[in-house]
Lab assay of single mutants.
Amino acid sequence: DHDVVPEDKFQETLHLKEKEGCPQAFHALLSWLLTQDSTAILDFWRVLFKDYNLERYGRLQPILDSFPKDVDLSQPRKGRKPPAVPKALVPPPRLPTKRKASEEARAAAPAALTPRGTASPGSQLKAKPPKKPESSAEQQRLPLGNGIQTMSASVQRAVAMSSGDVPGARGAVEGILIQQVFESGGSKKCIQVGGEFYTPSKFEDSGSGKNKARSSSGPKPLVRAKGAQGAAPGGGEARLGQQGSVPAPLALPSDPQLHQKNEDECAVCRDGGELICCDGCPRAFHLACLSPPLREIPSGTWRCSSCLQATVQEVQPRAEEPRPQEPPVETPLPPGLRSAGEEVRGPPGEPLAGMDTTLVYKHLPAPPSAAPLPGLDSSALHPLLCVGPEGQQNLAPGARCGVCGDGTDVLRCTHCAAAFHWRCHFPAGTSRPGTGLRCRSCSGDVTPAPVEGVLAPSPARLAPGPAKDDTASHEPALHRDDLESLLSEHTFDGILQWAIQSMARPAAPFPS
């Protein structure tokens, strides 16, 4: 592969990997390779389809078979030569091979799209000592099968071997295949498990690692696999990028399955594409389908809103127990993405979901129960707010008499603000006073009005108090039968009158 990737590009890729991570280095090298001529790309395919690569990765054979028959990708048995050289000459001794072996032994695996480039050397060096003999053996194999790289107009793939297949390693990572398949204008990513390549439709969760975000852009890794992070704060999961590491605690105790298979379609829109997988259930989501939507993949363990709600429900009964003089119970939860139609709101002032922060849900004790107040519409209280300059209440639009249902020339009671006709409430011909108009209920007259088809109010509507207090003497005590009587009149003013009279009014101040 030294004929494909020059030394300066190799060093530039290593520097970019240390600065921005393996995914960015892979993407940059792939983009550079696509700008080369067809001879360089053909050399790339020839390096990929060597015999030892085909033996190690069985899924490469179907890719090789898909090439046109007129494309010669065979390799000479006596060494490598550029395709432009007409004579089959043995190339001179390859010093770059020693360079590659020494550099890969030092860096474990470079971040390139060629056999030198995919593992994360920093994480491997940190986690190597417990498994040094086995990992050293794996390093000797890295130059042979560490990076199976493929690129063409139909298929483009980048393979990364790992030393996680050490025997006896619980939940060992089998390997990473960062794979971009450009077929019919689409893009897919796969993962390699035990020599087999699994596409998103049959993606397997190998051991402790999972394909957290099938994305090839942005600074985030394709698999949430930063070796420096180790395990999740809650004892979460091992990262795919942690090559040759000792077994780590796999999943939280509440995880239903340690080796679950995540779905390959969004649980909201039932469509495929780039998904984020939940650590607590097999569901996966688009970032845009979450509520609120996320802009980037959160670091650490992530769970959907259903799993978060289940966790909150487990903690909430203990938080609601009476604990005198104790601060509110704080339950730190990872930043969760909410699927459509589901929402768990945190306290005000918290950062938005999706940031690399930890939301704190506070379970406050329930407030003391209070008697429910009568629910009145805002339009129902409008007549009470229509007060004239002299303190006389004006008529609201649409006000109707509670007896006849007519809204023409209605009066407004100064005591309960109900609309009424003087002739309907006082049919006996009582003279109307000039000021202080009161309806039949507030004036103490319980004589029913002779209106055909309208039920008369119940005599129990009024329960006047002592006459010594004029204001308190007109406080009506309405009961269920009074409400039914008012409802039978089918008037809004009657219902409003009952609601206003049912509310307690402050006692009249004593004259000074």
Rank of each mutant, 00 (worst) to 15 (best):
Ala267Gln: 04
Gly402Phe: 03
Arg283Ala: 07
Pro367Ala: 15
Leu385His: 04
Ala399Glu: 12
Lys261Met: 09
Ala507Ser: 10
Gly444Val: 12
Arg283Tyr: 14
His363Pro: 10
Gln501Ala: 15
Leu290Asn: 08
Ser369Ala: 11
Gln260Asn: 07
Asp481Glu: 09
Ala467Asp: 13
Pro367Gln: 15
Ala508Ile: 14
Glu475Gly: 06
Pro506His: 04
Gly407Gln: 12
Glu390His: 13
Pro372Gly: 03
Val446Met: 11
Pro292Gly: 11
Val387Trp: 14
Leu337Asp: 04
Cys413Trp: 01
Glu326Val: 11
Lys261Ser: 06
Gly273Val: 06
Ala251Phe: 13
Pro256Asp: 00
Ala267Tyr: 08
Cys269Trp: 06
Gln313Asp: 15
Ala288Arg: 08
Ser339Thr: 09
Glu475Asn: 05
Pro374Thr: 12
Gly349His: 13
Leu294Asp: 09
His286Asp: 13
Gly398Leu: 07
His474Pro: 10
Leu376Asn: 04
Ala428Gly: 13
Arg432Trp: 12
His421Ser: 01
Pro374Cys: 13
Trp498Gln: 03
Ala456Lys: 06
Glu314Tyr: 14
Glu452Trp: 11
Pro433Phe: 07
Gly391Leu: 11
Asp377Thr: 14
Ala499Phe: 01
Ala428Arg: 08
Pro317Asp: 11
Ala467Thr: 12
Gly436Arg: 09
Gln501Arg: 02
Pro317Met: 11
Lys362Ala: 07
Glu274Phe: 03
Gly300Met: 15
Ala507Leu: 09
Ala340Trp: 00
Ser291Pro: 05
Asp377Trp: 03
Thr301Arg: 11
Cys289Ile: 03
Ala310Ser: 09
Thr408Met: 13
Thr311Ser: 11
Cys289Asn: 09
Arg338Gly: 15
His382Trp: 06
Leu290Trp: 14
Cys424Tyr: 02
Leu455Pro: 10
Tyr361Lys: 03
Gln392Leu: 12
Pro327Phe: 13
Thr447Gln: 03
Asp356His: 13
Asp482Val: 02
Ala418Trp: 05
Thr311His: 14
Leu462Glu: 10
Pro293Glu: 06
Arg461Met: 05
Gln260Ile: 05
Gly273Cys: 09
Ile297Asp: 04
Glu263Gln: 11
Gln309Met: 11
Pro298Leu: 08
Met355Cys: 09
Val315Met: 04
Ile495Cys: 02
Arg461Gln: 06
Val344Gly: 12
Cys304Gly: 15
Ala477Leu: 10
Gly336Ser: 09
Val329Cys: 09
Phe420Asn: 03
Ser306Trp: 09
Pro249His: 08
Val451Ala: 06
Lys261Val: 05
Pro324Ala: 10
Pro476Asn: 07
Pro247Gln: 12
Ser378Thr: 08
Leu462Arg: 08
Leu486Glu: 08
Ala371Gln: 07
Asp470Tyr: 12
Ala319Ile: 11
Thr301Val: 09
Asp406Lys: 07
Ser245Asn: 06
Arg303Val: 07
Arg400His: 05
Thr301Gln: 05
Gly407Phe: 10
Leu487Arg: 02
Leu275Glu: 10
Thr491Gln: 02
His286Ser: 14
Ala449Ile: 14
Thr311Ala: 08
Glu320Ile: 12
Glu321Thr: 10
Ala396Leu: 11
Ala460Thr: 08
Cys413Ser: 01
Ala456Met: 13
Ala449Lys: 11
Thr358Lys: 05
Thr408Glu: 06
Ala419Asp: 06
Gly388Leu: 03
Arg338Tyr: 14
Thr331Lys: 06
Pro448Phe: 12
Met355His: 13
